[in-house]
């Protein structure tokens, strides 16, 4: 498959998820502008949903920022992996950093030559950026048009989006065990600590389980 076609199909499919994000953000009482700024500036799906999800669950802005940032650390490691391939300096490195996400990294690393890798990175990064932002706007406006989704009982959309993001990551026994423990810990803590803390606490489980091979 050609790198252009790979990049385009990933961009349009992933970009379409942006509509779910836009709608979820507005459902959690973010404004259309705030939803769009998250897609333009934060630009990392799981982290964006986390900001919205933590606030929707009644968490403080600080726990929203912490959860989103912990989810975003992997982008830093992608950047690390890509730097020797992209070989960039100055402002190009800054632009590349902003579009370093799951998809651009995934498509890049799936290519066979360094030249194709660079193409895959840029095409997919810009492609997802474009469609993700367009669909965010569409989803946010759509949700605004139907009013408050909670009043309709549509509020399973947010956890379903998280589940959709989680699903492909449940690839081995270790991650299933971790997921089961995270459910138990998060729900056990919920009645006793401020909203948001039960979510962040689960980072500890990842550290404990990931410590040993």
């Amino acid at each position: 498959m050609s790198v252009k076609r790979d990049s385009f199909s990933v961009s349009i499919t992933v970009g379409a998820y942006g509509s779910a994000f836009g709608a979820a953000a507005v459902a959690a009482d973010f404004s259309v502008l705030q939803a769009c700024l998250l897609s333009l500036l934060l630009f990392s799906g799981a982290s964006q949903f986390a900001v919205v999800g933590v606030i929707a669950a009644g968490g403080t802005p600080l726990s929203a920022i912490a959860t989103s940032t912990l989810l975003g650390t992997r982008n830093g490691l992608y950047g690390l992996r890509l730097a020797p391939i992209l070989k960039l300096r100055g402002w190009k490195r800054i632009v590349a950093a902003q579009i370093t996400i799951d998809e651009s990294t995934g498509v890049a690393l799936a290519q066979n030559s360094e030249n194709e890798m660079r193409k895959g990175f840029w095409y997919t990064g810009f492609g997802v950026y474009l469609f993700w932002n367009l669909f965010t706007l569409a989803g946010a406006l759509g949700a605004q048009a139907i009013g408050n989704p909670s009043a309709w009982g549509l509020d399973a959309a947010v956890p379903a989006a998280f589940l959709g993001l989680l699903w492909p990551r449940l690839s081995d026994r270790k991650s299933w065990v971790l997921a089961a423990l995270a459910i138990v810990l998060a729900l056990t803590l919920t009645p006793f600590v401020p909203a948001g803390i039960p979510i962040i606490s689960c980072t500890l489980l990842a550290i404990i389980i990931g410590w040993r091979k």
């Binding site: 998060a186 909203a195 091979k213």
Partner: peptide, 24 residues
């Protein structure tokens, strides 16, 4: 290794809390 597992832990917690929690 830990970096690969952090999203699993956080996303699962977000699923659980956003499904079963109403504030606390």
């Amino acid at each position: 290794r830990i970096n690969n597992l952090v999203p699993v832990a956080l996303l699962t917690a977000l699923v659980a809390v956003n499904t079963f929690a109403d504030k606390t």
